[in-house]
Design a binder for these strands. Structure first.
Lengths: 235, 235
DNA sequence: CTTTATTGTTTGTGATCACAAAAGCGTGAT
DNA sequence: ATCACGCTTTTGTGATCACAAACAATAAAG
């Protein structure tokens, strides 16, 4: 019997064309991203291997990869855990997102063609729809897709892996906060971003992206709420 | 007999307190960073295990970690190689460095105390000395240490892993270019940075960092030279 | 001479095992 | 109660093996 809280991981069917390591990686990545594993929780290779019903080997490789992406943390004792959060670190992650993503957006702008514009418009309207339905999970996923679609317009783009690393680190806490929020209040900044893109106005786009990120944080909860989750995540 | 060019990797004595995987990781990381492995070169687990005289297992883990840090690239065929470079990608990496590092510098500035200032001054003077001796390797290492010491003044810093990833991706090409340069012409921007730090002038510091990075690139070679190396790295 | 089939080899993936270090745990002393 | 010590169990690390997919090279056919 585990003394620690039992881990409940959402399992998906494994595609035969994908290696076991890749499947384990994606599964654990989602689990971390969606806060299914509490920060501070110690992960052992054998335990995860048992839960996922695979041998320890693919788990080892997936854990090392996630640690390299800063999604997990390897302590001096060689134990792996989901990193704990502090209010200051949370703030640093948000500011880093703004700095890097507004840069990536500006660098992508000149490459946005009609196809890409159409794709962004489509995502934008899907987000509007998800907001009416108040489907928080869907909003979160579509929002990521929107940002990704924007940045990857730049064919020589090199920052997306770095951005995804930041998303991974923020993920658990965004989720923990939003899941407790009944009333949420969200101004859609994507419309502003779309307008800036159509006008090819790099500065306005950067402002819209920055505002979107900031309000995504505010959407996640007030600083006090966040503080509560962060403090409680330790024990 | 290998059909591909033989790999010559600088080996260091392995500290007993360090795991084999960590030692392999650091060894391969240095080899990539210093351009000892040519971009495009396919790396196999067993070959590296033979060169480093370890079993394939630690090599597997080190390769996966380096790939997660974008130092290596895993192709669809599951083969691992040092990523090839293009002029556009090189430019994107430089611009990403400027955006992220100037951000990190500004965020670190309020935390710089006397001890840190002294450390930075010491590194600054060591760089001056290395420049007089025209010791390119030493300059490069000290320059990295200077940047690291600056950014890590912020105790809640989260961007250093991202910055190091960019350094790793640029490393081979900086090296390849500098090694061919006889005449080099370098204005020391660290003095400007030091001055900005002492005045607690965030904007000036960002400008100095940006200039330092840009001139580090220029120092690496003219765009034409770089182009030569990039094109030749394919075959 | 070029192209396609086929065979032999190399390589990554994944499973299993051995071992030393770390963690947990009960016992006893202060 | 609290801490220290010795014992048992758990855990990460690393080595070795089996296997299927990818690759390379040769042979056959156009």
């Amino acid at each position: 019997m585990d003394k620690k809280s039992p881990i409940k991981i959402t399992l998906t069917e494994r595609d035969e064309s994908v290696t076991i390591t890749q499947w384990v990686y994606q599964t654990l990545r989602s689990a971390v991203m969606y806060g299914e594993i509490l920060p501070g929780r110690v992960l052992t290779i054998r335990e995860l291997a048992g839960i996922l019903d695979v041998s320890p080997m693919p788990v080892r490789e997936a854990l090392r990869q996630l640690a390299a992406e800063n999604a997990l943390e390897i302590q001096g004792n060689r134990r792996v855990m989901v990193p704990k959060m502090t209010a200051m670190k949370f703030n640093e992650l948000c500011e880093a997102r703004i700095a890097i993503e507004s840069h990536a957006a500006a660098r992508a702008l000149p490459y946005i063609d009609n196809d890409r514009l159409e794709q962004l418009r489509s995502l934008d309207s899907m987000i509007d729809q998800a907001q009416e339905e108040e489907n928080l999970d869907q909003i979160s996923i579509l929002n990521q897709n929107f940002h990704r679609a924007l940045y990857t317009a730049n064919p020589h783009q090199v920052t997306l892996p770095l951005i995804e690393s930041l998303w991974l680190q923020l993920g658990p806490f965004m989720r923990m906060a939003t899941s407790e929020l009944e009333e949420h209040y969200l101004v859609d900044r994507h419309n502003e971003a779309m307008s800036a893109i159509e006008r090819k106005d790099a500065y306005a786009l950067q402002m819209a992206i920055a505002a979107d990120i900031r309000e995504g944080i505010a959407f996640a909860g007030t600083p006090e709420m966040l503080h509560t989750f962060i403090e409680n995540s330790g024990h």
